[in-house]
């Protein structure tokens, strides 16, 4: 897992033309490819910005072996 940098994440969001429901999967793919994982911070942020719940995004991510998310317990 590479170090998560807020700035780098924000840049990624900008490059993806902002956050939208329609591009969420693509954006999270880029987060994974860039950081080697999807940090909870990102899930929380994207949930707040898309109206999706954290649980829904988390649950979805865990179904893909190429997304790396870690439960907190």
């Amino acid at each position: 897992m590479k170090e998560f940098k807020r700035q780098a994440y924000q840049k990624l969001v900008e490059q993806s033309g902002g956050v939208s429901v329609e591009s969420l999967f693509v954006l999270l793919g880029r987060v994974q490819d860039t950081f080697g994982c999807v940090p909870r911070e990102v899930v929380r942020d994207l949930a707040a910005r898309t109206g999706f719940s954290e649980a829904l995004i988390y649950g979805a991510l865990t179904c893909y072996k190429d997304f790396d998310v870690r439960p907190e317990r």
Binding site: S53, E54, G59, R73
Partner: peptide
């Protein structure tokens, strides 16, 4: 309320909250 989700892949699938909190 969207508190619950399925988490994990086959064999490890379970019901969970976000990040298992």
């Amino acid at each position: 309320a969207e508190a619950l989700t399925f988490a994990g892949r086959l064999g490890d699938m379970q019901v969970s909250t976000a990040f298992g909190i």
